[in-house]
Design a protein around this nucleic acid. Structure first.
Length: 492
RNA sequence: CGGGGAGUAGCGCAGGCCGGUAGCGCAUCUGGUUUGGGACCAGGGGGUCGCAGGUUCGAAUCCUGUCUCCCCGACCA
């Protein structure tokens, strides 16, 4: 054996990198901080995208597309928004190249300087709200429920495949509403959509909550989030939904006449989920043998490996039986590959498909056919069983669902075992150092204390959980009174 | 952007201190035997040593610059 993967124990960060690269999801590009998403990784993204897209449409949203470039002046129209993004913007200053008169290849043509520089979108609120201004006159034009699938660029200092890249793929929903209540309801609804998607399809339990002021999106009144736990106990934000109040409507002067013919500013939301979630998926379920992918979004759900012998006739029988099984599986909408490539041997294939996280593997040999069985192996638990060929497609269909739910429950158990309460500073620090994971603790509610804790313990408030029970207590740092525990963790 | 490490065949690495024209394992190609957990035998191909300068009769090796990646910090989805 020997898959040359770094184990989680050895070096968690290296293990993650190995999985992404050797699992065939992505690789580094020639451009700093950018990655190439390979077909297998993109297949994963397509499945995630398709499911979410349907969920968006089922909640009344439509897709649209806005430009990659944003005039520089737009970004500065909303004060906290520009402050939040200014430090990581790529800027287009020229529109033409020319041959270097000194023979040094092509150079930027200094004659072709843009009058107004363009920002490559780090997010699209500004360009969208400047557009919405023209779309809204009356309450009858509302709500606007639009989503776009796009790439965005944030010039990050330090990048990691999927988790943080300079360019990434995402979706961003941007909605406009007549009332505050409606906008808040939309914000919460989309948070629920994300939570449902991540839990039911990614098999990853999340905690829904609201961000503190300092962790809030630049330009938002409230930022809601779902937080997931990785196997190293660190938190990863899996999706965000923002209630933007009237901030962008005011910045871009988007008003509407209500039923009483009074002019009002529009209420806004925005919400996003990105390719970063692929990183979360990898870190949540995979093991030292490779990727472990939830069946519902795995690019390939089942692989069938024939075990050939010398006998050509027996070989044909295996192919025929495999074709039958494949036909049945496809009728059930299950994706399946028959790997009868004769240049690699079965053992090699077993290891390879484990590395790639294919949920179910079926091995079929002459010996099996004699007994009317096949060997069915599940990736999540790495167990094998002999299954009768009669009704094997049904068996596999059930097995896929079982794997999906097992992954989810495994992740829930892990998270439950790694959420702890801390009632004073010593406990807090001890848990972070010895156990990691999430910590529920009291906080006095001030940004100063939050900042101090971050500085001292490198842990941040991930969120104030929704439906949080009220409980009197004392802040773990200052001892000042607090009415509820908030969720702390070290985070990606 | 600061600190540490690294770039030599598709992948993983040795060689470097002490300069003399590049090697190992895996992969690949051909032929054969094989096939129930990363097969074996025989033969073959593949590298401007990250890039650009410099020193030298001669540079993978020494010097300078530069780019990229990884790890740890500061910043963020």
């Amino acid at each position: 054996m020997g898959n040359n993967l770094t184990s989680r124990q050895q070096d968690y960060a290296q293990w993650y990198n190995d999985l992404i690269l050797k699992g065939g999801l992505a690789e580094h590009s020639d451009v700093r901080g950018c990655m190439v998403i390979k077909p297998y990784g993109y297949g994963l993204w397509e499945n995630m995208r398709d499911v979410l897209d349907k969920m968006f449409k089922d909640t009344g949203h439509q897709n649209a597309y806005f430009p990659l470039f944003i005039p520089k002046s737009y970004l500065s129209k909303e004060a906290s928004h520009v402050e939040g993004f200014a430090k990581e913007c790529a800027v287009v200053t020229h529109y033409r190249l020319k041959n270097d008169p000194n023979g040094g290849g092509v150079i930027v043509d200094p004659e072709a300087k843009l009058e107004e520089e363009l920002i490559v979108r780090p997010t699209s609120e500004t360009i969208i709200w400047s557009t919405y201004k023209g779309w809204v006159q009356s309450y009858r034009d509302l709500p606007i429920l639009v989503n776009q699938w796009a790439n965005v660029v944030r010039w990050e200092m330090r990048t990691r495949l999927f988790l943080r890249t300079a360019e990434f793929l995402w979706q961003e929903g941007h909605t406009a509403h007549a009332t505050k209540e409606e906008a808040v309801a939309e914000t919460v609804q989309m948070l629920d959509v994300y939570a449902k998607f991540v839990e039911e399809y990614m098999a990853l339990p999340v905690i829904k909550g609201v961000k503190t002021a300092s962790e809030r999106f630049a330009g938002a009144e409230d930022t809601y989030c779902i937080e997931a736990m990785m196997q190293d106990g660190k938190a990863l934000q899996a999706g965000t939904s923002h209630f933007l109040g009237q901030n962008f409507a005011k910045a871009f002067d988007v008003k509407f006449a209500d039923k009483d013919n009074k002019m009002e500013y529009v209420w806004a939301t925005s919400w996003g989920m990105s390719t970063r979630l692929i990183g979360a998926l990898v870190m949540a379920h995979s093991d030292d043998e490779g990727l472990v992918l939830p069946p519902r979004i795995a690019p390939l759900q089942v692989v069938i490996v024939p075990i050939y012998g010398k006998d050509a006739e027996a070989r044909q029988k295996i192919d025929d039986k495999a074709a039958e099984i494949i036909k049945e599986l496809k009728l059930k909408g299950i994706s399946v590959k028959y790997d009868n490539d004769d240049t690699t041997r079965p053992g090699w294939k077993f290891a390879e498909y484990e590395l790639r996280g294919v949920p179910v593997r079926v091995a079929l040999g002459a010996r099996d056919l004699e007994n009317n069985v096949a060997e069915v192996a599940r990736r999540d638990e790495k167990t094998k069983e002999s299954v009768s060929l009669d009704g094997i497609a049904n068996h596999i269909e059930n097995l896929l669902e079982d794997i999906q739910s097992n992954l989810y429950h495994r992740a829930v158990t892990f998270r439950t075992n790694n959420i702890r309460k801390a009632d004073n500073w010593d406990e807090f620090v001890k848990i972070l150092d010895e156990n990691s994971g999430f910590i529920l603790a009291h906080w006095d509610g001030t940004a100063e204390t939050e900042e101090k804790i971050k500085e001292l313990a490198k842990a941040t408030i991930r969120c104030i959980p929704l439906d949080n029970p009220m409980e009197d207590g004392a802040c773990i740092l200052t001892g000042k009174p607090s009415t509820q525990r908030v969720l702390f963790a070290r985070a990606y």
